[in-house]
Amino acid sequence: MTEAPDSNRRNALRTRFSGAGGGIILALLAGIVLGGGGLWAYQTVIQQDLRTDRIELALQDLSRSQESLRQMQTQFEVLRGQLVLEESTRKGLEKSLQSTQDDLARTREQLAFYEQLLPPGPSGSISIRALDVSQRGDLLGYKVLLQRNATEGKAFSGSLQFQATGRQDGKTVKIDLSPAVGPEPQAVQNTDETSDSLALNFNQFQRAMGWLALPAGFEPVSLTLNILEGNTIRVSRQAQIAQPD
């Protein structure tokens, strides 16, 4: 008779425990589900952040590559401009050189032609190829072209001597003329340079020009040019002097 209450008590406790345990289990299961969802959400956020970082890094690399490309493009344009300028300069120099070579060839042909017309004579001989004389007041202007038949080697060293023939005090006289300062600004302006203007030192060709002083009252008729080597006359040429108007 006494066992019935105890049995009922145990059943009640078992039922209560079973109900409580089920709630706990359900709570645990809910926690697990929620925890799994949170973990999944956390992992998703991390993966998105990683993808964002990778995209930003890729964009930064792309920006740096584009900047490097722009710099290289700028350098390329500068170098191409320099190349075009150098090419233009080179072509200009080549054209100038070709023109100079053509002029030199024509000059050599003309020289060969004139040498055939006017043989320079034996080896070492000197020729007066041109002598032009003009009077201006009490001055005589002269232009001379000399040629020497010689190859490259020892140069000829000598001087010019000018002798004028004319009338002075009613008589025909022949006098030596000295260099003078000419009327043009580019003419010789000092005595030392004037004295040196008669000196010669050349191998094959020599040009000379200048002014000669005429004595007061002297009326020149002709001018004789002597090429001196020391005191020896190597060659002479005479030119008539046209009277000024």
Rank of each mutant, 00 (worst) to 15 (best):
S63M: 08
L62T: 14
T15L: 14
Y42Q: 04
Q43W: 02
N11K: 12
V78A: 01
G92I: 00
D61R: 10
A58T: 07
R80Y: 00
I24N: 02
S18K: 13
T15E: 15
G38R: 14
W40I: 03
S63I: 08
L26W: 04
G38T: 15
L85Q: 11
I46K: 08
R70P: 01
G38E: 11
G31A: 14
V45G: 00
T52I: 11
V84M: 06
V78S: 01
R64F: 09
A27P: 03
R80H: 02
A30R: 02
R80N: 06
N11L: 13
S68A: 13
I32R: 02
Q73L: 08
D53N: 08
V45R: 07
L57H: 06
Y42M: 06
D61N: 10
E67S: 12
R80F: 01
T44W: 00
G19W: 00
G23K: 05
G81Q: 07
G81K: 00
L34C: 01
V84P: 01
Q73D: 13
L59T: 02
R70N: 08
S65R: 02
T74P: 00
T15M: 12
G23N: 03
Q66P: 01
T89V: 06
V33Y: 04
L85P: 00
L85T: 07
R70A: 13
L29F: 09
S63Q: 08
D49K: 14
L79I: 04
Q73S: 08
N11I: 08
L69S: 14
I55N: 11
L29T: 07
L85W: 05
E56N: 11
E77W: 01
L62S: 15
T52W: 05
S65Q: 11
